[in-house]
Design a protein around this nucleic acid. Structure first.
Lengths: 195, 195, 195, 195
DNA sequence: AATGAATGAGGATTCATTCAT
DNA sequence: CATGAATGAATCCTCATTCAT
């Protein structure tokens, strides 16, 4: 019964926060949609911020779990990188709040938000790094600085997160991603120079 | 006199919006810092949103003007691309609101905001495209689809905008950018496959 | 017009605070009784506390002005002291908030409240002291320590403030005051010992 | 077991009410500090007000018991009066809620509160009266109206209750009390007039 | 053109209290 | 008896916007 209400609250909250952001979402509406009293939400979470944080943390954990599982299933570093990117963006569709996190004003968001976001980012960097290590070990990738490259690519992928929901259709985004991956693998120069 | 006040308002607004976003900035404070009455701002702009829009448009125009000028000054496509990236991010430092635009909730922002942002984006894509065309014509770049690639790269660069002010030092960001550019030029694969 | 509303607000506030205290009084009701919008009150005073403080300060100033005027009108120290007490308590009837100040929880009241209350107290002590000085100079009063005695008496009078509105009828209180003054003047001992 | 919890609740409540008053104290905190559930308190007392009332009644009874015992121990009316005052104020230090009772808003307090407070007051007046009767009988005190004088003095002592914890150091208060007692005994006039 | 004044609508919290188990 | 869970009601304050002068 309690668990039920809790999930109901969290579900509703995820949708509302996803649609309107933490600022514009009011607990009153979450409460009424979740069929509980506003005060009940405060019993569970203590504050609006806590509700938001909980929603975020769940989304982040979810994404990582799925990405890691997907990468396990393929072998070659190239495939792993492709899988990383495609899985990440497929999952992102559902992790609306994580995406929007990048779109919220820093000041209007609880401080711990940053930690969740950065944790996710760093763990992604970690995954990319280990794919790179594998690739370099197998002599498929060449790079002078694995971590630096991994972070650069992680940053680059962020540009697509932002765009995901708002501006373009999923299909077009996937085209761009394919293209970006192609470029990442081969570069745009005809002759290879040292990077 | 009128022009003076108008600039004063716009200046103050730019700073405030830049620091606190459109949501958290209130016209009252802008007014008092700009030494005018709140109602005066309404005389000039009609609404808070219009003030914001005006600030944005000015920043966008400013950036493009500077980027285009900088690119004119170098000749080779490779240099042009490098200049594009470095100029863009140098100017971005001052175009705080454009940057933060990516960090505002979609719903908390006037609809026309998107148009300004997208215009800027498309014009950047246009610039990158023409650099690519030049590069391909000169036989330096190879790519199967100029526009697609240009957009992919433009998206990738967005990831860095977000990060620009908040998370990392300028120097570190520049390292990552250098690395990204290197990867873009040469790829990470040892052997070139088709991109 | 503005002055009118301001007075209207302050008047209403004085009544409400007087009846219900700062805790239980809500600005909403003050606003509606004063025929202004809640926000208007905030325009004038900035916060509930400030309204309260303003009400208090006015009452305190009022009392002192009246006491000082009344004392001027009589000559002998004995008369002055009697006048002080009677005027003070006559005025107190209207300075409901000052009285209740002694009845509010320290914690539920803005910090500056204490200063107003203490200022009033100290100024009363000052007045009593100067009456004493006069009495001693004229050889009518005897006391070993004017300031100490003045404060002791000022404290004693506080006991009546508290009682003023709540427990007893005005007439009975005045009887008690008369008695207290008589005791203060002559003591209760048959034989005078050293005080 | 039951008695234990009840005492635990009452103890905690006394401390909390003493520190924060009935308004600012919430049952939730009392409950958690007393290691019981909020609902348990309702089982015992039925309402927040009842808890408060119980706390008060206990404090009042306690004070009176101690004062009466102390007065028994001395013989002369003068000593009895001095003992009354000193014991009263010594005990008051612990009867925080009784003291603060004078500092609570009348309206924020259960109606029966007044009865407890007045009972205590009247019983104090009774004690002072009987001391006076004794003094008059022994020809040490002179007074035209014992009850009136007793009440006047009881009121005067109230002024010090208020001040007790908040404004002054214990030592200074005791000085003022000494002075007040001296004045009460001997008056301030050089020549005795009719009291 | 410039502004002082006024306002309506909205939202996060807090807490005493009830009730089923 | 004891309690976890749920809630309704209340309240302060913010701000974009309007309007008369």
């Amino acid at each position: 019964m309690k668990q039920e209400k809790l999930e109901s609250i969290l579900d509703t909250a995820r949708k509302m926060f996803g649609r309107y952001g933490i600022q514009k979402t009011n607990l009153g509406e979450i409460a009424s949609l979740a069929r509980v009293a506003k005060a009940t939400i405060y019993n569970y979470f203590g504050s609006k911020d806590q509700v938001y944080l909980e929603v975020l943390q769940r989304e982040a954990d979810d994404i990582l779990k799925k990405i890691e599982a997907a990468i396990e299933r393929v072998r070659s570093p190239i495939e792993k990188l492709r899988t990383f990117v495609s899985t990440k963006f497929r999952c992102m569709k559902e992790a609306v709040n994580i995406i929007n996190l990048g779109r919220e004003r820093t000041d209007s968001v609880p401080p711990k938000t940053d930690r969740i976001r950065n944790d996710l980012f760093e763990r992604e960097v970690g995954i990319i790094s280990s794919i790179f290590e594998l690739g370099v070990k197998e002599g498929i990738f060449r790079t002078t600085d694995i971590l630096l490259t991994a972070r650069a690519i992680a940053y680059a992928l962020r540009g697509f997160e932002l765009t995901w929901l708002v501006e373009e259709s999923s299909e077009r985004i996937e085209h761009y991603l394919d293209k970006l991956i192609a470029v990442l693998f081969n570069g745009i120069l005809v002759e290879k120079v040292e990077g």
